[in-house]
């Protein structure tokens, strides 16, 4: 099992870079994972990451992109609830990439 080293602690990740244990997640780990994709996390990124973590906490799944887009639109306004905005923040896909930064498993139905 691969590990990443964040803040002096080794965290297990799977072959696609997703955290194995949700409980290992820290904001520092999120920034580290973003760094691997050469991304610097801004407030706009955090808004989505935090939303994903709340969604997972409530429903025990990472939402599909379509669901995420709709939910973001409802909560944060139409200018953010569209795939263009979300893909600009997370170029490898708001589902796959943002969930990885958020320490969640890959969204169900994400191939």
């Amino acid at each position: 099992m691969a590990t990443i080293s964040v803040g002096g602690k080794d965290i297990e990740v799977d072959e696609e870079g997703y955290l194995v244990n949700l409980g290992d997640w820290t904001e520092e780990a999120a920034s580290f994972l973003a760094g691997q994709d050469e991304l610097e996390l801004t407030d706009s990124h955090w808004e989505i990451i935090n939303f994903l973590r709340e969604y997972y906490d409530e429903y025990q799944i990472a939402p599909a992109v379509r669901v995420l887009t709709k939910a973001v639109g409802k909560r944060m306004g139409k200018d953010k609830g569209n795939s263009k905005y979300l893909y600009e923040l997370f170029p490898y896909g708001p589902g796959k990439q943002a969930c990885r930064f958020a320490g969640l498993p890959k969204p169900t139905g994400c191939i």
Partner: peptide
């Protein structure tokens, strides 16, 4: 085991 019953509440989003 993981309690997956909360996920039924997400079905409306789908």
């Amino acid at each position: 085991m993981k309690n997956f019953s909360p996920t039924y509440n997400a079905l409306g989003d789908y």
